[in-house]
Lab assay of single mutants.
Amino acid sequence: DRIFMTRTEALEFLLKAHQTAVDKIGHPSHKQTPADHAAIEALDRLLLDVRARRVDQFQINASAAQIIVTD
């Protein structure tokens, strides 16, 4: 599946995904793992790359739809 978004929409989408990941590892019942921190770092890099126009398409994980940034 493909989803087309403007750059602004894609950045909002990534910010929400980032916040969800941060909230998940901050929850008291969740045991933090290196994979959790790696996922947040990957989202940080992706946010910067989309914002800087170095990336025009991405996929958060293998089961997610491919996001295509349109400007």
Rank of each mutant, 00 (worst) to 15 (best):
D1P: 13
D1T: 07
R2N: 12
I3R: 07
F4Y: 14
F4W: 08
F4S: 07
M5L: 06
M5R: 01
M5T: 01
T6F: 02
R7L: 13
T8C: 06
E9M: 07
E9N: 04
A10H: 08
A10Y: 01
L11R: 01
L11A: 03
E12Y: 10
E12R: 11
F13M: 12
F13W: 11
L14I: 13
L14Y: 00
L15R: 14
H18F: 13
H18W: 11
H18D: 00
Q19R: 13
Q19N: 09
T20S: 14
V22P: 01
V22K: 09
D23C: 07
D23L: 07
K24R: 14
K24W: 05
K24C: 05
K24D: 05
K24I: 11
I25P: 02
H27N: 14
H27P: 06
P28C: 05
S29P: 02
H30R: 02
P34D: 13
P34I: 10
P34N: 07
P34T: 05
A35N: 12
A35Y: 11
D36G: 03
H37K: 15
A38C: 05
A39S: 10
E41L: 09
E41I: 12
A42Q: 13
A42W: 14
D44H: 14
D44W: 15
R45Y: 03
L46I: 07
L46G: 00
L47N: 01
L47P: 00
L48D: 12
D49F: 03
D49Q: 08
D49W: 04
D49N: 06
V50N: 00
V50C: 01
R51D: 10
R51W: 12
A52Y: 14
R53D: 11
R54N: 09
V55R: 05
D56C: 06
D56G: 10
Q57K: 15
F58A: 00
F58T: 00
F58L: 02
F58D: 00
F58H: 00
Q59E: 05
Q59T: 09
Q59C: 05
I60M: 10
N61Q: 10
S63N: 12
A65V: 14
Q66L: 15
I67R: 01
I68D: 02
V69S: 01
V69N: 01
V69R: 01
T70I: 14
D71Y: 07
